[in-house]
Design a protein around this nucleic acid. Structure first.
Lengths: 140, 140
DNA sequence: GCTCCATGTAATGGTAGTAATTACAGTTAC
DNA sequence: GTAACTGTAATTACTACCATTACATGGAGC
């Protein structure tokens, strides 16, 4: 119980949905595979639904299905859906504006961090959910 | 007081040291520019010293100096020094091994996350502390 | 209608990570 | 010896996250 594992759980969940042949899966069932509480899954599915990645069906015989084909979902889509990407972590308190470094450091840092983050996201954007599913199928 | 701002403070600190022409700077002075408590700076300097990036001089007229030229310090060096890069955040609890997805998801995820992280670090490794200093000097 | 079986969501508790601060021991120049 | 530093432990406060309970809502099937 330490770090943010929403991305991992979200990919896990989408993989399950992508392998169910359109059959709706319940949060209970998914939670059994992820090994967590169904409410955690429901909250996650709610976020994924807001991002247009899944659709939930209420009522008896309900559950969730993918809203798009696995070929049309990138891991970046999933990451951006579940990680509220607030500002990158810079200083908590604004640095001393009387110091040239304190005045100039933040824009420079932001630019570098943004470039680094863009490189990371580029990799995620070229990985499709369909590829994850294929890897699971071939690996098992 | 929320997120991890050690990287930002560390770059800020190294920038100050790199602009001081070899003059040792005290944690009090650095804290004044960063706008935080001197103890926070001393803890950070201690970590940077362990990574071989700075050297601290104890006693009166003491302080800290860079242990290498700014041209020989990348932002990746700083990042790796201050961020204990433990395992990437996957599931908290191991997923259900009886499920094919639960069994196979973690290696697949780890591979993708590692590739994405490598791309991010590649950008940081090509940015030198000297460039940050140059940007500050030209920007102010 | 009623009854299940689901989702949706609020509220709570526990754990962990981080920053800020106080306090004090160790070290060095003068 | 004293003053000016670093090094580090201990404490407090705050935030983020996950797990869990509880309950309202919605829909299928009788």
């Amino acid at each position: 119980m330490s770090k943010n594992c929403r991305f991992a759980v979200a990919v896990h969940t989408c993989t399950l949905l992508g392998m169910s042949d359109g059959q709706p899966l319940t949060s209970d069932w998914i939670a059994g595979s992820v090994n967590t509480n169904p409410v955690v899954i429901r909250r996650l599915l709610s976020v994924l639904a807001k991002a247009g990645l899944v659709t939930s069906i209420r009522g008896s015989n309900g559950g969730s299905v993918l809203a798009r084909l696995p070929q049309a979902i990138t891991l970046l889509d999933i990451q951006q859906a579940v990680d509220d990407d607030t500002e990158p972590a810079l200083h908590n308190q604004p640095p001393n504006q009387k110091c040239p470094v304190g005045r100039g450091i933040q824009p420079v840092l932001r630019q570098v961090i943004d470039r680094a983050e863009a490189a990371r996201e580029a990799v995620l954007s070229t990985t499709l959910l369909a590829e994850v599913i294929a890897a699971i199928k071939s690996g098992g």
